[in-house]
Design a protein around this nucleic acid. Structure first.
Lengths: 133, 133
DNA sequence: CTATTTGTGAGAATATTACTCTTAATAGCG
DNA sequence: CGCTATTAAGAGTAATATTCTCACAAATAG
């Protein structure tokens, strides 16, 4: 089907909420969930990779919450998408460690590579402030 | 995950086999399955949309089989991919009849549209003879 | 009419996606 | 200090989509 999953969809929506409310010191995942109509426990899970990638900063406890770890101008959409969905790979054979089963006997390797590069270029050219216009 | 499924993978591999053996009048799905190591009953099913889209021509019975319905130069990779995987839509909101749940409140609609167009352009620029080089 | 080949529908196995419930950390207050 | 309210983190479960199998139906050349 070649389509973005809910993880990417919800995660991007949540990140955009953080960009919009950058003034606040910390925002709770519960708030985001309520405002953006995202199932809370699922959203909670999505923050794990975002924190690991250094895109989001989190603290537990009273008055804890999450916030952007860096200037939103410095964070590309591609970065967020890859954190949420895993590395971009339109076909398995494009993953770093994968080798084509038939040594590119399908003839498609280069085609997918080119298509993926074109897509990645667009996603890399947009930063998080571009989402708020 | 944004990735091609086995349907696309196998289907393209099968189509390439037909391009390579264009001399033969008709080729049986059993042959393709054996040569390209694709589970036969599954491959059988993949031909249905290819026939419906007018990409492949099939006849039953003795000495029947499948073959390309048109000049491979006139068939784009995009056409085959869309037949096998359904219309290209990186996000649900990009499907013809779909409307954004929050009227593009996520800010991503235009980004996905642009990324998808870039990808489609590449896939449309390749025809089936490009796969055999 | 018979051997051969595609077409079709039901459904089992597996992988992925989506969601829920429990556990751990932290700040503030008495 | 130690308790409590609050919040993120992690483990586990349900739903859905994909991939694959099987059994049988329909067509066709010879």
């Amino acid at each position: 089907m070649i389509r973005l999953t809910k993880a990417g969809e919800y995660g991007l929506r949540a990140v955009r909420y953080l960009v919009e409310n950058e003034g606040e010191s910390r925002i709770s995942i519960g708030d985001i969930s309520e405002n953006k109509k995202i199932p809370e426990p699922f959203l909670r899970k999505l923050f794990k990779p975002l924190v690991q990638q250094g895109i989001i900063n989190s603290t537990r406890g009273v008055s804890g919450g999450v916030r952007l770890a860096r200037d939103p101008k410095e964070i590309t959409v591609l970065e967020v998408v890859e954190a949420l969905e895993g590395p971009l790979a339109l076909n398995e054979c494009l993953l770093d460690d994968a080798t084509c089963e038939f040594m590119n006997e399908c003839g498609m390797h280069d085609v997918w590579e080119e298509a993926q590069a074109a897509m990645a270029k667009v996603l890399r050219s947009k930063n998080l402030t571009d989402l708020t216009r």
